[in-house]
């Protein structure tokens, strides 16, 4: 047995069980080629998501069924109640549209998080983690891919805006940009959960539990204006409230049910749309940074 002499004791990094230090190899200067390589890795993972998106046409249709159901079935149903219940429901479909738009982006964005939980154990990500690139690049590529998929779903929902009486106006493109930022928020949330949670079942349950109340309490389905105080506080803490409100104020036409549904107010101040979008973007980036840290540390 051609054993080599044991190394000096001080070289031994004996810390039983501890995997605290980052084991990414990142953060080390590797010249300008290093940056290009990281960017290429980001692009590769984004590209991969695009290829997968285009290959799963059935999934796209399925992903759009729920939002369209909400819009056309629930929206139309509630609107028809306007005949007996008064004018309040008259423009409900228009009111519902921004929320449905946001809802449409969540499925594909979270699917990326789900794929991270799966792929890290047995899939392509396990292999990608041996590539000589930083893990933050892998995570960034996946997140941008997920956000783009979400934006594509959003674009498809925007395409049917005429059906709820919203004019095809250049402002729809601005709304699409906002939707892309919101999709990034969903992806970032999914990523953060994905790098924290090991079991795929836990991930799915948590996402289901978190998203339903977040959507309900975002002003997507009903206006926060008339809610009891305790529920109103939750609505104002919910980032999706500002996301939905930004989209609603951007889209052309009056979507506030004749002035009944107002924007969220922080101690009497109504944040402008730009501030709302920035808030969503900053939150998304923040969650991505935390996720990237956790991801790099796994080892």
């Amino acid at each position: 047995m051609s054993a080599v002499e044991a190394t000096a004791p001080e070289a031994v990094t004996g810390r039983p069980g501890a995997v605290a230090a980052p084991y990414d190899g990142g953060g080390r200067a590797r010249g300008p080629g290093g940056v290009r390589r990281e960017l290429r890795a980001v692009r590769v993972l984004w590209h991969r998501e695009m290829v997968r998106l285009l290959r799963t046409k059935v999934q796209i249709v399925m992903g759009l069924v729920t939002p369209v159901m909400f819009l056309l079935v629930m929206g139309t149903g509630l609107e028809s109640m306007g005949a007996v219940a008064g004018d309040a429901f008259a423009q409900f479909r228009g009111y519902l549209f921004p929320g449905v738009l946001v809802m449409a982006t969540q499925a594909p964005a979270l699917a990326v998080g789900l794929s991270v939980v799966m792929d890290r154990q047995t899939g392509m990500l396990r292999q990608a983690m041996v590539a000589p690139v930083r893990r933050v690049s892998l995570l960034l590529g996946l997140s941008l891919g997920g956000a783009t998929c979400g934006a594509v779903y959003g674009a498809l929902v925007l395409a049917i805006s005429g059906a709820v009486g919203i004019a095809y106006h250049p402002l729809l493109l601005v709304a699409l940009l906002e939707v892309a930022v919101i999709a990034l928020l969903f992806t970032a949330g999914g990523m953060l959960a994905a790098v924290t949670i090991q079991r795929i079942q836990t991930f799915q349950v948590l996402m289901g539990l978190a998203l339903m109340p977040l959507m309900f309490l975002s002003g997507a389905m009903f206006s926060p204006t008339g809610l009891p105080r305790w529920l109103g506080i939750v609505v104002h803490l919910n980032p999706l409230t500002y996301a939905v409100d930004a989209v609603r104020r951007t889209l052309p036409g009056e979507l506030d049910m004749g002035g009944y549904a107002g924007s969220p107010q922080i101690v009497g101040w109504t944040p402008p749309v730009a501030v709302e979008v920035c808030f969503v973007a900053v939150l998304a980036v923040g969650m991505l940074v935390v996720a990237a840290r956790r991801f790099s540390r796994r080892g």
């Binding site: 047995t122 392509m124 396990r126 292999q127 000589p132």
Partner: peptide, 30 residues
């Protein structure tokens, strides 16, 4: 950069074609 690795369990990208999988892998390695 100097090793190749074949895992015990399959780590292929099932949604991609064989050629795409190899292409993306090479790109990840720069």
């Amino acid at each position: 950069e100097r090793i190749g690795l074949v895992f015990q369990e399959t780590t292929l990208d099932l949604d991609l074609t064989a050629e795409e999988g190899l292409r993306f892998h090479a790109e990840l390695f720069g």
